[in-house]
Design a protein around this nucleic acid. Structure first.
Lengths: 241, 241
DNA sequence: CCAAAAGTGTTCCGCATACACCCATGA
DNA sequence: TCATGGGTGTATGCGGAACACTTTTGG
């Protein structure tokens, strides 16, 4: 295969990639991280974060935004539909990629795990959910372990003061599921009564039916009320734990 | 002037710049932002944040890190010696720079204003400190207003839970100066007694003499004790307000 | 002796924490 | 009727917030 053309510039430029720390949650398994097995060199067959190069227009001037690149990669490589996306940090150490100078804009993304089934995509031979610790049974490719660490720290910090946890749960959920989510992310047990009181006191959850088909008392289901939250924020409210 | 060579790649690549939100503080003036007047197009003669392109090696593979690029630009354009530097966010919207696709890695930096005198540098016709609101008497070049906004938000947030404010003060300072700094950044008055008690209770400040030559009772000067802080962090301590 | 800033304690209230039992349901 | 998780109230203590006067120093 021959390249029809190349792209030339006055000064050297780095390649720019996006890499995504994609979290999922299941009451059974706890917090999970999506990793893919690389198909191509470098680090062929090694586990890595989903990601890839940002696409520019042929004239090198337009093309997709960084957020769009992250969403596209997640779609292509994992089939996940993302509920929340947030830029984390840009990694740019000179030798972080053996192919040359490659910047990586790291993202954190959250999905409702039940919504979708993981599949490998174009560049990914295989994709799987792993526990966050020991991601992929050891070290990830490139500096992806550091990126994961950063993603975990950000998720833990942000869960306390922003209502992003709901993006890891189905649209309606029981309070106990929400509590298990918080416990899994924050890595410590929470008191049931205090948790329920605090969450409900914020008036952000709307009742949405009851559980069905469970072998015990059916829990009340709730839905996160985006509108109520927007109104409260507007009035100076801050979500807290 | 003719270019001796150009740099060619298989796929189009963006140019990558760093831009710095540099804060200074003076008890008289409050919190200030450093802006430069651009010498060249685009946005010639407009006020902008100090910044410039990241330098890569001639082979386009090595070169300076992003942090180094930010420090270099600050040195070149302002002569400031930076006490604290932190990456903020990477801006990459397709049309944010009229010259083509340019990513900007934004940084927040803090200086001890008394340490240095502002000067214009190579690319900056002029540099000045401005109040943070109405920076540069109106709108800054590119999307720099948005970057400033982000920098202010980050500084406000981080001041509460990390001891970074000291990087805006001289090595030794009076508690009232520290309080004025907090009030200037957080934009609200703080109670003197509560402030002193909270700060001193952390055991992070070491006495360092008294003020001289003031026309009133001389205040005790303090120095931020990095060692004590490191020890406390190690023991699970969290700085808080 | 006056102006200007430094320095100092106590009270009150709200909120986070700790804690244990009854309820509803399907098997 | 039993196993499983759902759902509920109170007492205690700590820490943040509010608040005003005396001290020191140079001019």
């Amino acid at each position: 295969m021959t390249r029809l053309r190349t792209f030339a510039y006055e000064f050297p430029r780095p390649a720019v990639a996006v890499d995504c720390v994609l979290f999922g949650f299941d009451p059974e398994d706890g917090l999970r991280l999506l990793v893919i097995r690389r198909r191509q060199a470098p680090f062929a067959d090694r586990w890595a974060l989903p990601g890839g190069f940002v696409r520019l227009d042929a004239d090198g001037e337009g093309g997709e935004s960084l957020d769009d690149a992250a969403l596209r990669e997640l779609r292509e490589e994992t089939g996940a539909n993302v509920a929340y996306l947030e830029q984390l940090y840009t990694f740019g150490a000179p030798r972080r990629d053996p192919r040359g100078r490659v910047l990586s804009v790291a993202y954190m993304a959250l999905v409702r795990t039940r919504d979708h089934h993981v599949r490998g995509g174009d560049d990914a031979a295989e994709a799987k959910w792993t526990p966050v610790e020991r991601s992929g049974g050891g070290k990830l490719a490139f500096d992806h372990d550091a990126i994961v660490e950063l993603g975990v720290a950000r998720l833990q910090a942000k869960l306390r003061y922003a209502p992003i946890g709901f993006n890891l749960l189905p649209p309606t959920f029981a309070l106990s599921e929400l509590q298990r989510l918080y416990e899994a992310v924050l890595q410590r047990p929470l008191d049931k009564r205090n948790f329920r009181r605090r969450i409900l006191a914020m008036d952000l959850l709307a009742e949405a039916g009851r559980q069905e088909g469970v072998a015990h008392r059916a829990a009340t289901l709730y839905r996160f009320d985006e509108r109520a939250y927007a109104r409260l924020v507007h009035a100076g409210f801050n979500f807290e734990l």
